[in-house]
Amino acid sequence: MEDRVKRLTELANELRVDILAMLVKSQSGHPGGSLSVIDVMTALYFEIAKIRKGDPNWVDRDRVVLSKGHVTPALFSVFAKLGFIEKKELMTFRQINSRLQGHPDKKCPGVEVATGSLGHGLSMANGMAIGLKMDGKPNRVFAILGDGEIQEGQVWEAAMAAAHYKLDNLIAVVDHNRLQIDGWVESVMTVSPVDEKFRAFGWEVLTIDGHDMNQILEAFEYALTIKNRPTVIVAHTVKGKGVSFMENQAKFHGTAPKMDEFKKALEEWNITNFDFSIFE
């Protein structure tokens, strides 16, 4: 295995522990989608995007828009690792007076735009991409969307506009975990074929296994070479990925795990040295 693939895979699994720890403490939030998207986000924040550790406001940074804003546990676990926030701050998630709001809020360093109400992120990413292009900046804008989210009509207004304005500095990812709050996406409201829809809107479309770090990196690196049109990476993922009893369970879209469930997950991961004092 390529060194960086191994490193990023391990890092993503480390962040999975932080995600669940935050949720156990807050007893509120969204584990399923956080676990499905964390491999993509790890690749993006730690390898692909121009992001500088400890410097969330670096002027020459790439922009990442988390349009599926409910997966703040994934986002904040990344931010702690990047030194944008202190790791112990993760334990304040969703509590009163915390910078770590339920959904991304600009109070927290590293959050580019407030999201959470679904369907807004791609439009805002378009605006950033247009602005950066106007200024002749080489930076990219990345937008991470959910597959349930693309039921919002505005996503397709944005998809149309991104192609119209030839935003080749924009790369979107659809975290295609096939589940939304009310159940299977395809039974709630059919979104497939996701790839053909984007292709019809004028996008370059890549389809990958969103848990295969090698495929994730290859897709992003290929996307960086595309000219004259935006790229979407349709990442096939598993909701709740990495915890046997959470995988493919709609229940864990928005239900935080209990302490005994967290301990069970640690057992599955063969983690014996977890420091439970962080919960105090």
């Binding site: 735009v113 605006g127 950033m128 991409a129 247009i130 200024d135 207004e157 944005a158 149309m160």
Partner: peptide
Amino acid sequence: AEANMVDTAAGLSQVG
């Protein structure tokens, strides 16, 4: 597409 327009404007404001 007014919804997309307002959000695109918001995005533009984030890059100055």
